[in-house]
Design a protein around this nucleic acid. Sequence first.
DNA 1: TTGACTTACCTAAGTTTCTTATGTATCATT
DNA 2: AATGATACATAAGAAACTTAGGTAAGTCAA
Lengths: 112, 112
Amino acid sequence: MYSSELIKGTLKTIVLKLLSENQEMYGYEITQKVKDLTAGKIQITEGALYPSLHALENEGLLSTQTMNIGKRVRKYYSLTKKGKSVAQEKISELTDFMNTMRFLLDLKPSAQ
Amino acid sequence: MYSSELIKGTLKTIVLKLLSENQEMYGYEITQKVKDLTAGKIQITEGALYPSLHALENEGLLSTQTMNIGKRVRKYYSLTKKGKSVAQEKISELTDFMNTMRFLLDLKPSAQ
DNA sequence: TTGACTTACCTAAGTTTCTTATGTATCATT
DNA sequence: AATGATACATAAGAAACTTAGGTAAGTCAA
């Protein structure tokens, strides 16, 4: 597990990325998918995810569809048109940021 | 400029990395160095940096040395022994995290 | 010489975003 | 029948910033 500060700020982008590859997903599925894909190194808590999903919906980036599975309810999220475009922006911003950070971290000692 | 959420959580590691390459630096110098190295894409504000430097000092990772430049005072920070070891840990954790994030962001659509 | 900008330190209130804790309920397995 | 997984949700508190402000010295052009 990474220390939690690192993950801060990347959650919404991760969600948007997953939804841009999967058409529709429900909350719990997202937590499991991220856990699987990262071999448990990134674990999204429900306390962080659900409020974040609601915020993305309020911003008009996600739409929801409720499905009944037996007697339980599942809430599927998918990207709106606006969500698709914002997703691409956020993904390239984060990719760019990762490259910048990698550059910083790879610096060699300066001559002094 | 990257949206500020992204930078959250990476500040201390950036500081530790710069100090592990430069022996000693003062606060303002750190802000300028990061700005230069990232072509202005990452700009550390003083409101974020100074409290962070104080925290690192309180944790025993940094030591300070005050220098008089004319009538002004400059506060140089350098890594303690503990700071050097923590710096290496934080740097490799962040590098690892970047690789994991890159993997997530590079995922192709799953077959459905 | 004064006004604007840069250098250089600092703190504090407010915001955002998460963690931690809790609640509810269904379903599967032992 | 109990445990663990599935699946949703909220709310109080913590952490790490942003924004805004304060102080003061040095530099440079008009």
